[in-house]
Design a binder for these strands. Structure first.
Length: 355
DNA sequence: CATTCGTGGCA
DNA sequence: TTGCCAAGAAT
């Protein structure tokens, strides 16, 4: 027989958080909070949107760029769409950037520039779902919302040694999380559980020996922590083919195209090209002598691999494109492109320098 | 409920 | 090299 498990206590986790809270750019730490410093809801929201399915390491520089360039929600609401999309380039999931602007404009226009402080109203805003509404509500406004992200799912699955696979187990894990959420310091608690998941209760090689909830953890007792949470098997990614046309005018301008708002890389700048599939058809955006690079650009998206054939051409000043528009050099920065388009540019740029 | 939607780091 | 994973939302 195993020793009876103690019920996990929010207070134990808060004590751990007071000692081990990570210093993150968007975070008001437990010490400052105790001194009465409140987080800026705009910054909490911005960081939470950036952190959706994205690592802290990847977010940091983008967060700095955005808060420096657009320090308030009003400033962001007044930004040009293209500037925001360019600033988001490389971070991925570009619907987030489109919704970020929609949300900023809704807050500035419909809410007097003040972020709503309740879960239900936050949920009505673009790009804010269950998790983000709860996180902003808890972290920025210290409301006892049940915050359930991937970290919390993992921590709860292990605490309860729950083997039901996700996403089926989600309601149950949410229920577990709800029973633990305290009324005192809910903002710190929300961040504490996520920190625990990010630094101790990690997917691989969890540091159970350092966990403040170890004595309460059923998976620790059962030795099943690394197996949890279970997840439904993933599908294998198919490979799609495509053709990109990179045209450079003699003055150095490049021919680019704004992608439609919906779908893959929506709203982003990109190279004109074919569709992406099993048998892509030629679709040159301008009459030219196209040369094909020996190396193709390879990129993996969420649900497929892409092999992109890169064709390049040098064009005179007076040639008019059928699609897209030439962007002159000071206005065009490769860093404004989503990664797959930047890969194609890097190949073309290297190739055209050689010849 | 299942699918779509990026990217980089890591084992 | 391949698969897995990260503070999910929208449809």
């Amino acid at each position: 027989m195993s020793a009876p498990r103690e019920r996990p206590r929010a207070g134990d986790l808060l004590d751990w958080y007071d000692r081990h809270a990570r210093d993150l750019p968007w975070r008001v730490g437990p010490r400052a909070r105790a001194e009465g410093v409140r987080p800026d809801p705009y910054r909490v929201w911005l960081s939470e949107v950036m952190l959706q399915q994205t690592t802290v390491a990847a977010v940091k520089s983008y967060y700095e760029t955005f808060t420096t360039r657009w320090p308030t929600v009003q400033a962001l609401a007044a930004a040009e769409d293209g500037d925001v999309m360019a600033a988001w380039a490389g971070l991925g999931y570009y619907a987030r950037a489109r919704n970020l602007l929609k949300c900023a404009r809704a807050v500035a226009g419909d809410h007097g520039g003040i972020f709503p402080d309740d879960h239900a109203t936050l949920l009505t805003l673009p790009g804010i779902g269950r998790y983000t509404a709860a996180a902003v509500s808890a972290i920025a406004f210290d409301r006892p919302e049940v915050v359930v992200d991937g970290n919390v799912e993992r921590v709860m699955a292990r605490l309860h040694d729950e083997h039901t696979p996700l996403p089926q187990a989600k309601p149950l894990l949410t229920d577990f999380a709800a029973r633990l959420t305290p009324d005192t310091r809910p903002g710190c608690y929300a961040q504490a559980v996520m920190d625990l998941g990010a630094t101790i209760c990690t997917p691989r090689n969890p540091a159970c020996g350092l966990c403040p909830w170890r004595r309460s953890c059923a998976a620790w007792q059962a030795g099943t922590a690394t197996e949890l949470p279970r997840k439904a098997p993933k599908k294998r990614k198919p490979t799609r083919l495509g053709i990109a046309y990179l045209a450079r005018r003699v003055d150095g301008a490049w021919l680019l195209e704004r992608r439609p708002d919906s779908g893959l890389l929506g709203g982003m700048l990109g190279w004109p090209g074919s569709d992406w599939g099993d048998d892509p058809q030629e679709a040159p955006p301008i009459r030219a002598e196209w040369k094909t690079l020996t190396e193709e650009a390879r990129h993996t998206f969420t649900h497929f691999h892409l092999r992109l054939t890169v064709r390049t051409a040098l064009l005179p000043m007076d040639r008019r494109p059928d699609r897209g528009e030439f962007i002159e050099l000071p206005d065009f920065r490769p860093s404004d492109l989503p990664t797959v388009m930047r890969k194609a540019f890097d190949l073309a740029h290297a190739g055209m320098r050689k010849s």
